[in-house]
Simulated scan of single mutants.
Amino acid sequence: MNIAYWVLAALLALFYVYAGGKKATQSKDQLLPMMGWVDRTPMPLVRVIGVLEVAGGIGLILPPLTGIAVGLATAAAIGLTLIQVGGIVVHVSRGEARLIGLNVGLLVAGMVTAALVP
């Protein structure tokens, strides 16, 4: 169980720190080719999502690694899962239901990670 948590948490943390970092730092024009939804989303909201993703990715690793406030890892996993719920809603509302595969995969991985927090 512990190994499964660390594998999932590490993969999710890498993904979210990378993707969130892009959202937090890159311009709308730089994000548009891979994230079409930013065309209708205010950039301050894109930045907030990015910062939350980076914080969630760090929150999956740091608390269990240090043994301090380990419950924050569960909160991080749940928060990242909720971000994916929002992503699915955005894609479906834009008529992009075919694009929700990654969101669904990340949602499931986040839920499993939340259940496995050591």
Rank of each mutant, 00 (worst) to 15 (best):
M1R: 15
I3P: 00
A4R: 04
L8D: 14
L8V: 14
L11D: 06
L11A: 11
L12G: 12
L14V: 13
F15C: 05
Y16R: 04
Y16P: 00
V17Y: 04
Y18C: 02
G20P: 01
G21K: 09
K23D: 01
T25D: 04
D29A: 15
Q30N: 12
Q30E: 13
Q30C: 00
L31D: 08
L32R: 12
M35D: 04
G36A: 11
V38M: 06
D39M: 10
D39N: 14
R40I: 02
T41S: 07
T41D: 08
P42N: 14
M43P: 00
M43C: 02
M43T: 02
L45E: 00
E53L: 01
E53G: 06
V54I: 10
V54N: 02
A55E: 04
A55V: 10
A55W: 00
G56I: 00
G56L: 06
G56S: 08
G56W: 06
G56Q: 05
I58D: 08
I58K: 08
I58A: 15
G59D: 14
I61Y: 07
I61Q: 08
L62A: 15
P63F: 09
P63D: 13
P64Y: 09
G67P: 04
A69C: 05
V70I: 15
L72E: 03
L72M: 14
A73V: 01
A76G: 06
Q84P: 06
V85C: 12
G86K: 09
V89G: 06
V92A: 12
G95H: 03
E96F: 03
R98S: 15
L99M: 08
G101M: 06
L102Q: 14
N103K: 13
N103R: 13
N103C: 09
G105A: 11
L106T: 02
L106D: 02
A109H: 01
G110T: 01
A115C: 11
V117M: 15
V117P: 07
